[in-house]
Design a protein around this nucleic acid. Structure first.
Length: 591
RNA sequence: GGCCCCGUAGUUCAAUGGAUAGAACACGAGUUUCCUAAACUUUAGAUACAGGUUCGAUUCCUGUCGGGGCUACCA
């Protein structure tokens, strides 16, 4: 039962009958009536003024009369300027509540038959995950849940940038200075250990550069001629040549990193169905380039390098294979895209990648279209804004990177502190308590990040800890815990909303919000935007808190009121749970 | 230089071209014999600037100013 849809359909009919206007159902503007006005939903009539040649309020009255005649569920309407405010009968709302309050699948859209693959995270293997990856992971994970809720068949995949000069730097520095240090011997997480040597490489390079510069060399020349830099380049060549010793070291260090990453994924609560590795996709990528060259989609320059010409599309010429025949970033992505299509035959590929790569993804899509690949048109780049610090962009060299593991641990600690201060869980076992701290701490972090429109840059201030009050994850979790507490106490009551109950303003707004849930899911899906889910969830929790403060539930004035409110609370809990689940936030029964 | 994105209260975020631009934090004032006060109520506070389109502009267009990104045979 989609009340708004039905209203719009009837309005389309009414417009045709009254004025002969052919309106598209989805072009009609129907909003939830603001609290200051009487009504449930408002239809905006300004857009018809021109065609009808009548005043907006006259149109509103005429429409209102006909709508009420056609739709018996409408109990009345009022008109303010061009706004037709419509009220539905109590019985419609009671019936709605009765039907859906126990429906855990409320909001789940029918199957679309579409296969979607969401690629996210995409880390380099030379250093640990940081705040940027956190935003990426939370977006990728919640978007996947959202698309599932929207009826799509979704798979999550990761792509490891496991080769190239960066990992070689860590390898060289480790060889030089680590004295065989391992995650076991050092007690460091594998990704942190490898990251430590990535930083170490920079230090060595700096020292060597200074020595050369003191000898009279320019900075650029000194950086190029430093022996440690030469070693890294040599290491890369050896890797590409398949040198056994190099490959063994590379595998060893990368494996340390993977073990470390897995731990972080578990901690933050994300998962992947399949991993791709650029070391395995760059060769298929090369083949695709050669195939394109043979088909005439690409061209070769005198020096032997291969290019794609995208100037017709307003872009540039982009290199696909260097003159020495080695591949570049784009080459690998062509290969990865092909492998992924072979694996999943998806209709849509979502790439969750920061907006600094907007240009790259335009290039990737256009290049695949030029090759007439069947999966080219289905590429969607979820381009999200970078996370900035008050000092600006995070820079690993300046040590301003916010580490993902540290951040999560801090969140858990803060949650612990707040929770213990409130003293509501003294009967919890140690495990139960620890699990709750994680739920609340990560809930706060996840909501903080996911409430922001993905497209926009966002600011994170490590000096000010993330809030647990107000517009936050714990606020929503708390609303859920309160409802759970009531429902535990009401376990013996078989509540069913009574037909004759008349919900007041506050109860009505909560019902209207609950009714809106599937529409919100559809819109959020269409715009690939989990922040809409986050903001909706906050409004729902807020709306419930208002209701909770204004009304007694268990000791309501009448049995009818009690049963209605219990059903309303249960329905709210179900939707909060479902929406939080999309965001990857756990809903605690107590907190 | 060229191309792309962004400028909303002190701060962090909202607002498919629609009603008096919403919240939260911080600041001020309140609410606990009663279902969990991580809550509720309440005061004050913002669309960078200048034009244009529109019945109506934070939203669309143009320009100015300010911030960020891309523009590698790096990934």
């Amino acid at each position: 039962m989609f009340i708004v849809q039905q209203l719009k359909e009837t309005a389309v009919f009414a417009l045709l009958q009254l004025y002969g206007i052919q309106a598209e159902r989805d072009s009609l503007i129907v909003n939830i009536t603001p609290d200051e006005y009487e009504g449930d939903y408002s239809l905006v009539t300004f857009p018809f003024v021109k065609q009808v040649k009548k005043a907006p309020d006259v149109i509103a009255h005429e429409l209102g009369n006909l709508l009420q005649e056609k739709l018996t569920s409408i109990s009345g309407f009022n008109v303010i300027k061009g706004f037709l405010n419509i009220t539905f009968h109590d019985s419609l709302w009671i019936e709605f509540l009765k039907q859906e309050n126990q429906n855990k699948l409320w909001g789940k859209l029918p199957s679309s038959g579409k296969k979607v693959v969401v690629e996210y995270c995409g880390p380099n293997t030379n250093k640990p995950l940081h705040l940027g990856h956190v935003r990426n992971m939370l977006l990728g994970y919640s978007l996947s849940n959202l698309l599932k809720k929207g009826g799509h068949d979704v798979s999550r995949v990761n792509i490891y940038n496991d080769r190239g000069i960066a990992i070689c730097k860590s390898m060289v520095a480790w060889q030089r200075n680590a004295k065989g240090e391992t995650p076991e011997s050092s007690g460091l997480k594998g990704d942190h250990l490898v990251g430590k040597y990535y930083v170490e490489f920079d230090k060595i390079l700096k020292r060597e550069t200074e020595v050369l510069m003191n000898g009279g060399m320019s900075k650029d020349d000194a950086e190029r001629n430093a022996s440690v830099a030469a070693e890294a380049r040599e290491m890369l060549l050896k890797w590409e040549a398949g040198d056994a010793e190099t490959i063994a070291l590379w595998k060893k260090m990368n494996n340390w990193v993977y073990v470390g990453f897995e731990e972080t994924y578990r901690k933050i609560g994300v998962e992947f169905e399949k991993n791709y590795y650029e070391s395995e996709t760059y060769l298929p990528g090369k083949e695709i380039v050669l195939e394109g060259l043979a088909k005439g989609a690409f061209f070769k320059k005198e020096d032997g390098s291969v290019w794609v010409d995208l100037t017709e599309k307003g872009l540039d010429e982009k290199v696909l294979l260097r003159s020495d025949g080695t591949s570049v970033y784009l080459t690998q992505d062509l290969g990865t895209a092909q492998l992924r299509y072979d694996d999943f035959k998806m209709d849509t590929s979502v790439y969750v990648v920061a907006n600094e790569q907007d240009y790259h993804f335009q290039t990737l899509k256009l290049t695949l279209q030029k090759l007439e690949k069947p999966f080219a048109d289905g590429i969607y780049h979820l381009s999200y804004g970078m996370v900035d610090l008050p000092s600006g962009k995070m820079k690993s060299r300046e040590g301003t990177v916010v580490d993902a593991d540290d951040l999560l641990d801090e969140m858990f600690e803060t949650a612990k502190k707040h929770t213990l201060e409130l003293g509501k869980i003294e009967d919890f076992s140690e495990e139960e308590a620890a699990s709750l701290f994680k739920k609340i701490g990560s809930g706060a972090l996840k909501f903080f990040i996911l409430k922001v429109d993905p497209k926009k840059r966002m600011l994170f201030n490590p000096e000010e800890s993330i809030d647990f009050h107000g517009q936050t994850g714990p606020f929503i979790q708390y609303a859920y815990a309160r409802i759970s507490s009531i429902l535990r106490k009401a376990a013996m009551i078989d509540f069913q909303p009574d037909e004759h109950y008349s919900p007041d303003r506050v109860e009505r707004s909560l019902l209207i919000l609950l009714q809106q849930y599937p529409d919100m899911i559809r819109e959020a899906c269409e715009s690939y935007n989990p922040s809409q889910v986050a903001n909706y969830t906050y409004h729902l929790a807020k709306s419930f808190n208002k209701f909770y403060a204004d009304h007694s539930i268990l000791s309501a004035e009448t049995e009818a009121a009690r049963d209605f409110r219990l059903a309303l609370a249960a329905f709210t809990a179900n939707v909060l749970f479902s929406a939080l689940e999309i965001l990857g936030i756990e809903a605690p029964e107590r907190m």
